[in-house]
Design a protein around this nucleic acid. Structure first.
Length: 905
RNA sequence: GGGCGAUUAGCUCAGCGGUUAGAGCGCUCGCCUCACACGCGAGAGGUCAAAGGUUCAAAUCCUUUAUCGCCCACCA
């Protein structure tokens, strides 16, 4: 039956079919009962209501490459998908949607609001799963998980209660970062610092009962309304005498004490600091030390409140402006200077955060961090690349307690109940009906929810059934590997390490590979909000998912960020097309061959697994030996590269092999054999071509799953074989490492390329066949050429190739020399341009001269000869000898050309 | 204020102690050669940011400098 195959690869025609096939057939369903070493990996759960962005695409490409690679190598493989409820960001989205309908979410009430979020999750959730299926990720969809599902919520509660019972979790009043837009406290990690030009305002505070004015410096004048002291350094001669006196707080006309505190830096500003315990972390501490009142002058949403006197109702920055003006009017503003300060922004809303005192839930981290530090130190968790390990240590060793509570409605509600009778706080797995301390039955559940990262921190074990000892948990935990971006090393990876070790007694993953970020050409992190993001789904449609995956992989060098460009994508698309067309060549010719009555049996023989090429008359043709040697070498490189997360190296190796070796040389070389009238000869050629191509497809499959699946099915496969994804990855075979074949074929390549160069440089008609001479002093070299004369003549467009012993006596432009051989196309020697040829010769001679001189110099150096390894010396001597021969030949020819010995037109 | 990374061909990036430094794209020249013009063949193009140092040997290791970028940090 003739095969129908389009001229160009059209991914959109093919991808949906296989995407559906993989899911429907449940090919990637893991079975803990199956034997084999385990490779398990959990997805970094994307936001449930989100859609695939370019960062996911990179994550998922790397994960899927490694997953498919392991699966093909016989591992019991699990790639577990799922999503995150993403507290803050999901709530923000729904709040915004409601606002568009002129609804204030707070008016809806908690229950109704949460209902709406679930509703929205049902509507828009599923997008990303759909996209993941579309791009063919080989995950086990039967094990999909969601952080806010009843099952995982139970785990969250269990963990929280245990931590509480173990004394890790506590409640405390502290000054924390507050986002006036998201209306919740944030952990330190959720605040991003940005240097911004601002001002330093010098404000005069009159000292009561004196004529003195105490000038303080501040970057946030609006907070002065909440000042409860002015602090100076106790040893500061300028201000010492004022300690204990009162200052009159301008605008508020409130008397506040002047205090002495070591925290004041005498060098900075004026050496006097206003103290606002309710709005500044330092001041908060000072306030505690000195028993100062905390006056909060702002509302939740960043406006001035009743404590701000006349400024009540002003938005905080408007208040700042007004206050500065008023101070100026009253003559109390001494000076304004420019000042750059690091300002805290909410990671989500990018609003300037407001330090604010409140009572929150915290988790003690130091004791949890210690075993997690040790695990990395002892190599139980391997962090790649290495420099991230140091970052991990630095952060973990200086870890601070984690603010767990958030003033949100979407998330895991804290399992704590407050007794209205005695204020007792009860933490429990199930809602208690009455207080444990007093007879009251009036218990209110804590309104706060947990930080989203709390549930993500449990992900590797909560998804596998912990705390039950399920077969999944027993078999797949610890997971083998975690792949994610380095930007969430602290948010997520570190917390998983700590919580995983604490609760399971084992590391949650044996290795962490932190990949680069995809950036814009300007070096910025891609972001949808800035409009600099790339939509991977659109790109997949434009270039093909396989091309996209290959492109990302080929650029994913560990430790460096990726800048995706159209050029690279086009290159990858071309590669896909190249593979497609190689297949097309095979199939079209196979049809012709089969029409002649031959039949290729299913690829079940030994050669198919690339263990050995088929032989013709007892011996394997050189090109076939060479092909299999190249396959084996490539497999080795790929295996080694993937084992070390060097995706770019692996991609480059398969690219070079497929395009540079298989297409450019092997296919071209065997073309005539395929049509050979000697049926046995043709048969061997076909079998080896198929075996090579089949191995190449399997090698390529982890990178380009769709294309390879499509083509694999068109090859004559063994009965019952379902998918290339379940087929075997080629193995490196020692017996195929044929150094002789590699060297001999390489000589042939050199000769053919030499002939082509001469033809091209001498502007020979591309279609014209000419005769050539090959000369070598080495009989073996000549024998190789003679044995492969047909191929050389065909690819070198020759009518005839004569082989001579020794050197070619004379030569002009039609000549090419290496240390081992001379090559000549006599016909063009008469048409050369002496000047051009001399220029070329001079250039080559200059390069060789340099090389020879540098080697000679080194070899003449006593110290080099005594200290360098023998191998280096020997190799250099050999190289030098060869280059000297070549240099001599070229110089000789140059002399002859200059001397006019060679006649030229 | 600390820490990290980058600086290599026109562009985007590999290489990170041992032959005349590589790839893709772009460029030049020649080809619609019966798988592929998303192609084929042949080329040009780099004092590896700068200056010192270590070494028999340095893009590669060390120091300093410059420029760019990232992360961490409660100097008002």
């Amino acid at each position: 039956m003739p095969r129908e195959i389009a001229k160009a690869y059209e991914p959109t025609q093919i991808e949906p079919r296989w995407a559906e096939f993989w899911v429907k057939q449940e090919l990637f369903k893991a079975d803990p009962a199956k034997p084999g070493p385990v490779f398990s990996i959990v997805i970094p759960p994307p936001n449930v209501t989100g859609s695939l962005h370019i960062g996911h695409m990179l994550d998922h490409t790397e994960i899927d490459i490694l997953t498919r690679w392991h699966r093909m190598r016989g591992y019991n493989t699990l790639y577990l998908p799922g999503t995150d409820h993403a507290g803050i960001s999901t709530q923000r989205v729904v709040v915004r949607q409601l606002a568009e309908q002129k609804i204030n979410y707070r008016d809806l009430g908690r229950e109704e609001f949460v209902r709406r979020v679930w509703q929205w999750k049902e509507e828009s959730g599923g997008t990303i799963q759909q996209q993941m299926k579309q791009i063919g990720e080989s995950c086990d969809w039967s094990r999909e998980r969601f952080t806010l599902s009843p099952e995982l919520s139970r785990v969250v509660r269990e963990v929280f209660v245990r931590l509480y019972e173990q004394g890790y979790i506590y409640r405390e009043n502290r000054l924390l970062n507050w986002c006036p837009v998201c209306l919740t406290v944030l952990s330190d990690l959720e605040v991003i610092h940005e240097e911004r030009p601002g001002h330093l305002w010098l404000i005069r505070y009159p000292v009561v009962g004196t004529k003195e004015l105490l000038t303080v410096a501040t970057t946030r004048p609006e907070t002065m309304l909440g000042d409860t002291a002015v602090a100076v350094h106790p040893e500061d001669e300028r201000y010492k005498h004022l300690i204990g006196k009162k200052a009159l707080l301008p605008l508020m006309n409130r008397e506040i004490p002047v205090i002495g505190d070591e925290m004041v830096d005498r060098e900075f500003g004026t050496g006097a600091v206003k103290i606002t315990p309710a709005h500044d972390p330092n001041d908060f501490e000072v306030g505690k030390r000195h028993g100062l009142a905390e006056i909060n002058v702002m509302t939740d949403d960043g406006h001035m409140n009743a404590s701000a006197g006349a400024y009540k109702g002003f938005e905080r920055f408007a208040a700042r402006k007004k206050i500065v003006e008023d101070l100026k009017t009253q003559g109390l503003l001494e000076k304004i200077t420019d000042h750059v300060s690091a300002i805290g922004l909410c990671e989500r809303s990018k609003t300037v955060v407001e330090p604010r005192a409140s009572t929150q839930w915290f988790c003690r981290m130091k004791p949890l961090a210690e075993p997690a530090i040790a695990a990395v130190e002892h190599g139980e968790i391997l962090i790649v690349p290495e420099n991230r390990r140091q970052e991990y240590f630095n952060w973990m060793r200086n870890i601070r307690d984690w603010t767990l509570s958030r003033q949100l409605w979407w998330g895991h509600r804290i399992p704590a109940w407050h007794c209205s009778g005695c204020k007792e706080v009860i933490v429990a797995r199930e809602a208690p009906t009455k207080c444990t301390k007093c007879p009251s039955g009036d218990l209110q559940q804590d309104p706060d929810v947990l930080d989203t990262w709390f549930s993500s921190g449990l992900w590797p074990f909560s998804t596998l059934g912990w705390p039950e000892k399920t077969p999944d948990f027993e078999r797949y935990y610890p997971t083998s590997l975690l792949i994610t971006g380095y930007d969430i090393l602290f948010f997520w990876v570190a917390r998983m390490a700590m919580l995983g070790i604490h609760f399971t007694g084992q590391v949650p993953f044996r290795a962490v590979y932190l990949h680069s970020l995809v950036r814009t050409t300007g070096g910025e992190k891609m972001s949808k909000s800035k409009g600099t993001g790339l939509d991977p789904v659109a790109l997949n449609e434009q270039y093909g998912t396989d091309a996209m995956r290959f492109c990302l992989a080929s650029m994913a060098a560990p430790g460096t960020d990726i800048v995706l460009s159209d050029d690279r994508l086009l290159g990858a698309r071309s590669f896909a097309n190249k593979i497609w067309n190689a297949a097309r060549f095979l199939f079209v010719n196979l049809d012709k061959y089969e029409e002649s009555g031959a039949a290729i049996e299913a690829l079940a023989g030994p050669a198919v697994r690339a263990r050995a090429p088929y032989a013709y008359q007892g011996s394997v043709p050189l090109a076939d030996r060479w092909l299999f040697a190249r396959i084996t070498a490539t497999v080795e490189v790929v295996n080694d590269a993937l084992a070390n997360y060097r995706f770019h190296e692996a991609a480059q190796a398969v690219y070079q092999f497929f395009w540079g070796d298989f297409c450019d040389w092997y296919i071209e070389w065997v073309k005539p054999d395929l049509q050979n009238t000697d049926r046995v000869r043709a048969d061997v050629a076909w079998k080896n071509l198929f075996a090579g191509f089949d191995a190449a497809l399997r090698l390529l499959h982890p990178f380009m799953p769709f294309l390879t699946e499509e083509l694999w099915h068109q090859l004559p496969q063994k009965a019952g074989a379902k998918s290339i994804a379940l087929d075997a990855f080629p193995e490196p075979v020692a017996a195929l490492k044929d150094a002789v074949a590699l060297a001999e074929f390489s000589l042939i390549q050199e000769v053919i390329q030499g002939l082509r160069t001469v033809r091209s440089e001498m502007k020979l008609d591309p279609k014209k066949r000419v005769s050539a001479e090959f000369a070598s002093a080495d009989a073996k070299t000549r024998a190789v050429i003679e044995a492969n004369r047909d191929g050389i003549q065909r690819l070198g467009l020759l009518t005839e190739l004569r082989t001579l012993a020794g050197k070619l006596p004379d030569g002009g432009g039609g000549m090419r020399s290496s240390a081992e051989f001379d090559l000549r196309i006599p016909e063009v020697e008469e048409t050369i341009d002496v000047a051009t040829e001399l220029a070329r010769l001079n250039k080559e001679i200059a390069g060789l001269d340099k090389a020879v001189a540098s080697k000679q110099k080194q070899l003449d150096n006593e110290t080099f000869r005594s200290r360098a390894p023998q191998k280096v010396i020997r190799e250099m001597q050999e190289a030098l000898a060869g280059q000297k021969v070549e240099l001599e030949k070229l110089s000789d020819r140059k002399r002859k050309l200059e001397g006019g010995t060679v006649t030229a037109s």
